[in-house]
Structures are given as structure tokens and as C-alpha cells.
């Protein structure tokens, strides 16, 4: 994949911004040392949704294959951990990674079937696939505990969950960035813009799509795995919860699809917004949520990141100087 000369300056900027992101996220190592309880729990949940949004972004934002069933990988990860810990007494951390691997393998296999289907057909098929897995989780009681769910040994480890999920978020962000800068990223964007054309130029679209699908599934699986040992109780309805997919999509769209920063900003802002609304308006927060979803899409369909760029540029035009480097 030839690199364009123009991209060089941008690359430097991206590198610096990545370092800044890393720095900011590293700062989040501190809170659990000085604080415990609600705020840590809230931050951890924000990280989880953000990591999920970022993982969704890798397949759907980059390649344009909108997966509505991405929560299936969260569920696979959660159940892998549930089964490994309760039936085979695995260590929870190792199990989480294995949960990610299980999702990865499942995605490779399912991708062979699903990724041949395009557009809205793909979106709904992935949703249906997730529902099939849920039915399996409900029925294979010897393995999954059926509707009774799986009760993991109580450990209630908030701090561990916080760090594990922060690490997942950092990793998925780094991978999302690396993919975007690599030839794989170019291939995925080419597929998004016009798959047939991309194939004519010799891009092996199947390979890239499946790889992106599997990588993205891995991180969703790890997040699901961590969630399982954190809440200590999973059942088919909470592990395969379709609202999770909507959270991922909405967070990514909110921030800006296809960018690395988009899902991060979207995830933080959206999850926080939900929390604030729901703490302050217990009865009507869902009404406000629905309305704000509509309003955001109506006025900033490109996402917050794109709009911020425009604002900053506008400020530059009217003469407000912002130092280029910090």
C-alpha cells in the first residue's frame, strides 16, 4: 500500500496525540489507590462501554459492516469465563484472556458465514446470530446452567476489575490505532468505500474483514469475561443483552465512526451523560435519552470529534490563537 507524502505530517501529529491519549489513560491508574466505591465502579463501567465501542469500531467503523450482534462476543467471553471458572476452576484472569480467544475463534468461524452478507442484511444477521447463541445458552444446561445462569465464586474485586478493564481499553485503543495506520486499515477503508472496487485493486477483502471481525471480537470477549467475574452472576439474558450492542453503536456514532478518538470520546461522554441523567431525573431519563439521541444525530451526524475539529478551525479563522504544541 503506497503511503501518500501528505500523510507524513499527519502521522507525526497522530503519534503525538496517541502519546497524549496514553498519558491521559495512564493517569486513570491513580484513582483506585486513593478512592474506592461508587466513582471507581462508575469509571470502570465507562471504560467497559468505551472498550466495547472501540472494539465495535474496528470492524464496523473501519469496514462499514455494521454489526448489531456484537454483544454476542461479550456473551461468549462471559460464558467462557463462567464455565472455565465454575467447572474447571481456572484463574479468573487467565480465563478472561481465554474468553477473548474463544470470541476470536468464534468470530473467525462465524465471519465466514456472516461477512458474505452485506449492509442491513449483515446487521440483522449478526443480531440473529447473537440471539441463536442466547438460545443455546438457555438450553444447554449441563454447560451453561440454562436459565438459572452461572454463579461464580464470590470475590467482588472492584479494584481488579477496574485495572483489568482499563488495560483492555488501552490495548484495544492501541490496536485500533495500529490497524488504522497499517495497510490493513487502508484495505478496510477501501472496503467501506466500495468493496467491489477494492477487490478489483487486488485487496483480499474476505481476509481483512474476518481478521478485523476476530480482533474486534477478542476485545469484546475479554470485556465480557472480566464483567462475568466482576458481577459473579451471569444468565443468558444479561450476558447476551442486545442493549449492549446499541450502547456500542451509539457511543461510536456519538463520537465519530471510523476514528480512534471517536469511540473514546463518545463512550466517555455518552456513558457519563446516561449516568448524570439517570441520577438527576430518575423517572424521565429514558425520555431524555431518546430525545438526545435524536437531537445529536439530527445536528451532529458526523459525531462530536468532527464537530470539534470544525470549531477549532473556526476559532483559528477568527483569530483566536491556540498553541499548536503543548
Amino acid at each position: 500500500m503506497p503511503k501518500l507524502g501528505l500523510a507524513v505530517g499527519r502521522e507525526g501529529a497522530m503519534k503525538r496525540s496517541l502519546m497524549l491519549i496514553a498519558l491521559a489513560l495512564t493517569l486513570f491508574l491513580i484513582p483506585p489507590i486513593v478512592e474506592k466505591g461508587y466513582y471507581i465502579n462508575l469509571l470502570a463501567i465507562i471504560f467497559m462501554y468505551t472498550a466495547l465501542a472501540q472494539s465495535w469500531n474496528i470492524i464496523s467503523g473501519y469496514s462499514g459492516y455494521w454489526s448489531f450482534g456484537h454483544y454476542m462476543f461479550f456473551g461468549i467471553g462471559a460464558y467462557a469465563v463462567g464455565i472455565l471458572v465454575t467447572k474447571l476452576s481456572f484463574d479468573a484472569y487467565l480465563a478472561s484472556v481465554l474468553g477473548g480467544l474463544a470470541s476470536f475463534l468464534a468470530a473467525v468461524f462465524l465471519g465466514l458465514i456472516l461477512l458474505r452478507i452485506k449492509g442491513p442484511y449483515f446487521a440483522i444477521s449478526s443480531l440473529v446470530m447473537a440471539e441463536i447463541l442466547k438460545v443455546i445458552a438457555i438450553n444447554e444446561e449441563w454447560l451453561t446452567g440454562g436459565g438459572n445462569g452461572l454463579i461464580l465464586p464470590p470475590r467482588y474485586a472492584l479494584r481488579e476489575f477496574y485495572y483489568a478493564i482499563l488495560l483492555t481499553l488501552l490495548a484495544v485503543t492501541a490496536i485500533a490505532y495500529a490497524i488504522k495506520r497499517s495497510s490493513m486499515g487502508y484495505a478496510l477503508f477501501a472496503i467501506r468505500d466500495d468493496e467491489t472496487a477494492a477487490e478489483t485493486y487486488g485487496i483480499n477483502s474476505t481476509k481483512y474483514k474476518i481478521l478485523a471481525f476476530a480482533i474486534s471480537a477478542f476485545f469484546a470477549g475479554v470485556a465480557g469475561g472480566c464483567f462475568a467475574w466482576f458481577v459473579t452472576y451471569i444468565d443468558p439474558y444479561s450476558a447476551f443483552d442486545s442493549t449492549l450492542a446499541l450502547m456500542m453503536i451509539v457511543s461510536a456514532v456519538f463520537g465519530g465512526i471510523g476514528t480512534v478518538m471517536g469511540p473514546i470520546i463518545g463512550g466517555f461522554v455518552f456513558t457519563l451523560l446516561m449516568e448524570v441523567l439517570w441520577v438527576s431525573f430518575p423517572y424521565v431519563y429514558l425520555i431524555i435519552l431518546g430525545a438526545s439521541l435524536i437531537l445529536v444525530m439530527r445536528f451532529i451526524p458526523d459525531g462530536i470529534v468532527e464537530r470539534l475539529v470544525q470549531i477549532v478551525q473556526l476559532m483559528g479563522k477568527v483569530g483566536i490563537k491556540i498553541p499548536a504544541r503543548i
Binding site: 501528505l6 502521522e11 501529529a13 496525540s17 491519549i21 491521559a24 475539529v309 477549532v312 483559528g316 498553541p323
Partner: peptide, 16 residues
């Protein structure tokens, strides 16, 4: 353009 890249760093820095 290069300029846009710089601007992008700026706003990312501001957000952070």
C-alpha cells in the same frame, strides 16, 4: 494537510 494534522493535535490535547 499538515496544518490540519497540527490542529488535530491541538484539539486532542485540549480534550485530554
Amino acid at each position: 494537510s499538515y496544518k490540519k494534522g497540527v490542529v488535530k493535535t491541538t484539539y486532542i490535547a485540549i480534550i485530554i
